[in-house]
Design a binder for these strands. Structure first.
Lengths: 233, 233
DNA sequence: CCTTTGTTATGTTATTTAACATAACCGGGT
DNA sequence: ACCCGGTTATGTTAAATAACATAACAAAGG
């Protein structure tokens, strides 16, 4: 099948795509109703309060989904990897984004038209089931995050964030360096702590030999201990 | 249509039932594959780690869904009202409960068989869409709760909990007394704080004339201020 | 009616975390 | 190379919250 651009192809055919297994005709319909946007590092994909234009597929790059609190403090609710989708929720309920999203690397997004998707789902229970499954998983993830962020201590929360980053973005070729470059502020936003505390706690884990820190490159040295801190901290 | 017992009837025909609009034949199928359980106040509906038997409908009563943390401290993730459903997630992904649930009043639950429901959903995109919609709503709720519980101060968290309780269970006939009786420990678990702090903060709101407290009966006196504290606390 | 047991209330102390202040560092642009 | 602005690092202080201790109270059962 021929696609207009590599970005939409990636969204529809990529390794983890929701739309795997969909028939070519339906894929064509989706591909026929999308727009591509280039987003620079640091730029917003969308802001809380804006109207959703559809389901967003992060074709290339990396992004964060977050809520802006008082005083500019952000709480990150989700880190998104290549081929990840954003905005299942705005698809089915509200049309208004209840969170903001920003690129943490230069990215390309495809916006898949809401009405097209909903129309497809109405006659394709299989596709709808896939959405349901993903929403369930996200719900489970969100609920566990709530528990972690409220009950764990600062060290445990940071450890968990590092594990989340590893699970989301994986390692560099060396097999130990996290394949993502985040500011300390973002790490703090992900871990529900202040930037100072993120820096301090990273230093702590580093001097304990559990992780290595060189600027924004973070290596996980002692996975077992890190997971231990995550589970019991 | 005739049902075997009032409990399953409630689940299928109750005001907020997921299954509203389903045709009689399908409803009959669901009704043909369920079990009813009576649960006493304080008893578990299920425990984290147990195998799910299906989708639970709280036919009568009230319940809480929670995670048990270290030292017996509970974080409540959801309060369930009459005719509420529990366990969408276990239906689609894991078969294992990742949370526990307990009755906070004597209750009757219907357990609707997983395979029956999944089979129905596979051929009924409409029903599946309903699940999808509810899951989206729950996901949105869960994400906002994460933000609230992590970013708000203790007074704001408690105010939010009271509002959640009002929105879930409503008021008594007097139009101001919360129609639910929770221990201070449960209020604490819902608000992510210790029991002592729940008691103290309730006293505080009470002496400020925002709420009234007489044992477990809580009245909301000044809604505007309470919502204000919730939003800016 | 009294005992028992769990819940609620309140004061005190300890701990965790945020807030603030300042300095060192680092990368990009000229 | 050198400045500049943002990031990172580290120390100090303040605030929020948990932990602990104890007492009052209330409901349930003998």
């Amino acid at each position: 099948m021929q696609y207009l651009n590599p970005y939409i192809e990636n969204c529809l055919e990529g390794p983890d795509s929701l739309f795997k297994g969909l028939n070519s005709k339906d894929k064509e319909t989706i591909a026929g109703h999308h727009t591509v946007n280039h987003v620079r590092r640091g730029d917003y994909l969308f802001r809380e309060g804006e109207k959703s234009r559809g389901l967003i597929c992060l074709s290339t790059g990396k992004a964060k989904v977050f809520k802006e609190g008082v005083g500019g403090r952000e709480q990150i609710v989700k880190m998104v990897r290549q081929n990840g989708f954003i905005g299942y929720r705005a698809l089915f309920t509200e049309n208004i984004w209840s969170f903001s999203a920003a690129a943490i690397e230069d990215s390309n997004i495809c916006v898949l038209e809401k009405t097209t998707l909903v129309k497809l789902m109405k006659k394709n229970a299989d596709l709808t089931m896939k959405f349901t499954r993903i929403l369930s998983e996200e719900l489970g993830y969100s609920n566990s995050r709530t528990i972690s962020l409220t009950q764990k201590h600062i060290r445990g929360r940071l450890a968990e964030s590092l594990i989340v980053l590893r699970d989301t973005y994986g390692f560099d070729e060396d097999g130990k360096t996290l394949n993502v470059s985040l500011s300390r502020e973002d790490i703090a936003g992900l871990s529900n702590m202040t930037t100072s505390n993120a820096i301090r706690t990273l230093s702590g884990l580093s001097s304990d030999g559990i992780i290595g820190v060189k600027g924004r490159r973070i290596t996980i040295i002692d996975t077992t201990t890190l997971e231990h801190i995550c589970n019991l901290g």
